[in-house]
């Protein structure tokens, strides 16, 4: 069950107690704004805001750093390529490759943006259990099919992971060790196919069980959300901050 745990969803911090709907709206606006922002000031502002939210969520620092490290390991590859391929004024050369000033700026901007968005999402979205996330999206009037897709994917991910582990164990118990040969490829292909077939079968049975309990294509939710004063304060504060970032972005000259 390790791969799909939700380490940040439990807690009693302010960010955990906020109404998920407000957090989702703010996080969506924030991510969009930062993704399209071009000025360093706006991106730095976004990063500051995200870190502020992270303080509200008060999550275990080590784990947050671990997640950030994972994200930045992807960005590392960007640094290997982008500075040398972006056209602009040459800054230094490594063998046949020339790094440009603009390329370095651009890589730095992307790094800051990605970290700002990830920190923001960790603080606002990862603090909502996936189940609640689905229900909040539903109450935000997202198409029900998308919400159900999210909830069902989440619910059955564990079942399929278990099934996969069971099949893998069964293979292992019969002496299977992955190698680079035809036998291994075939075995893994069988494993994947079997998982697919079983998943389809299970989907069929789950649907049948739902039919037997009177399902007619519509989900009714038990959950009601309560919007409180702190949610209003959070939403207003965040929107103001986002507006300030937008203003910065709009008024200041582009750097790249």
């Amino acid at each position: 069950m390790s791969g799909i745990a939700e380490p940040f969803s439990e807690g009693s911090s302010l960010a955990h107690r906020l109404d998920p709907r407000g957090k989702i709206v703010v996080a969506a606006l924030f991510a969009t704004l930062i993704a399209v922002a071009q000025s360093l000031a706006a991106v730095l502002g976004g990063l500051t805001l995200a870190v502020l939210w992270l303080f509200l969520a008060w999550l275990p620092w080590r784990q947050v750093l671990g997640k950030l490290l994972a994200v930045n390991s992807f960005i590392f590859f960007l640094w290997l390529v982008l500075p040398f391929s972006y056209p602009g004024d040459p800054l230094f050369t490594v063998g046949p490759l020339t790094a440009t000033k603009q390329g370095i700026w651009f890589s730095a901007l992307i790094t800051l943006k990605s970290n700002a968005i990830i920190i923001g999402l960790i603080a606002l979205i990862a603090t909502v259990p996936v189940v609640t996330l689905g229900q909040s999206l539903h109450s935000l009037k997202l198409p029900p099919k998308l919400c159900h897709l999210l909830l069902f994917t989440y619910r059955y991910l564990y079942v399929f992971e278990e099934e996969y582990q069971r099949l893998r164990t069964a293979m292992k118990m019969r002496g299977f060790r992955p190698r680079t040969n035809m036998h291994t490829y075939r075995a893994f292909a069988y494993l994947a196919a079997m998982l697919l077939v079983r998943s389809a079968d299970r989907a069929e049975r789950v649907f049948q069980a739902m039919l037997c309990r009177g399902f007619r294509g519509v989900f009714y939710s038990l959950r009601t959300f309560s919007w409180q004063r702190r949610d209003g304060v959070f939403l207003a504060g965040s929107l103001l901050a986002l507006a300030a970032i937008l203003l910065t972005e709009w008024r200041l000259p582009r750097l790249v």
Binding site: V131, F152, R202, R205, A209
Partner: peptide
């Protein structure tokens, strides 16, 4: 159903038990 994993599809127990009555 024979297999409880087929029957229980809601994330929480309460929602699953309430699913039928809500459909009614």
């Amino acid at each position: 159903f024979q297999n409880a994993d087929d029957q229980l599809f809601c994330p929480t127990v309460l929602e699953d038990v309430a699913f039928g009555p809500l459909n009614q």
